[in-house]
Nucleic acid binder design. Structure first.
Lengths: 137, 137
DNA sequence: GCCTATGTACATTGTACATAGACACTAGAC
DNA sequence: GTCTAGTGTCTATGTACAATGTACATAGGC
């Protein structure tokens, strides 16, 4: 099967490329669009697509491997592996999430996105979240 | 009036301190908890509270000043100033927002926060967003 | 066995965060 | 007016880290 760009990153952003790559792939993993046994592009392949160095992609893969999503083997490539749901985080983890969410919304508003649009987007995403792991294609 | 800590940042986080400070204050500005004519703590005051250098706070203030929220004057301090709603961003801006939101939610899920809790938090924030600029204390 | 393709390790380079410390300006006391 | 304390601002510096270049180690096809 031929992949569409698979993921997309913004090289002009201040957030590190390897982190963006990991975040994008993580989103696909969480939503189920990438399922166990699926093969990921090789580090050099994806690096060429994104115009970064293959070591940058390798660093992203390593992060996901440490989180338990991937199995990396030299010479063979990267595959998605089954992963048990991690222990729910404590108050601190949940509060950090809320904090980052608030900051993101405030920034969006400051850039001119209307509260109405923001609220609508939140509702949309909430809907998607409820369908995670149910509807993997 | 005596301020509670006003804002709080995480020095162990990978996101720069000056950015966290700006984001926190921006949230207060957007929500209306900081209104025009209000005075902010001095850079040295806030720096002492947060255990950072006063130049770090100054950098955060400068960001907010460039966004049009603050008026900075040497010797006088920092005050909130009226700000006209900026022009709504184009497709790119809106898509960047959606992208960042998706990444944040995926990360939260990967850390073990249940989809149910995430969806609930989104609904809560959507509610808050709708009350911006209505209920400034 | 050899060759090609894969992920990995290490040294190097550039950039940005955070700090230190001196400077410029303002307001108020006297 | 002058002095003084307090404000934001500027320049230089140390350190950490992102991204790279290059060489290496491993797997699989022929």
């Amino acid at each position: 099967m031929k992949h569409a760009p698979l993921i997309q990153i913004d090289l002009s952003s201040h957030v590190p490329a390897y982190e963006q790559i990991a975040a994008e792939i993580r989103a696909l993993l969480v939503s189920g669009e990438l399922a166990p046994a699926d093969a990921l592009p090789t580090v050099r392949q994806l690096a060429a697509d994104l115009n970064v160095h293959h070591n940058t992609v390798a660093q992203a893969y390593r992060i996901l491997a440490e989180e338990g999503w991937l199995d990396l083997r030299r010479g063979r490539g990267a595959r998605v592996v089954p992963r048990s749901r991690p222990a729910p985080p404590g108050d601190k983890g949940r509060r950090t999430f809320t904090l980052q969410l608030k900051r993101l919304l405030a920034k969006a508003a400051a850039e001119g996105i209307s509260p109405r649009l923001i609220a609508r987007q939140l509702a949309l995403q909430a809907h998607d979240v409820r369908n995670w792991t149910k509807g993997d294609s």
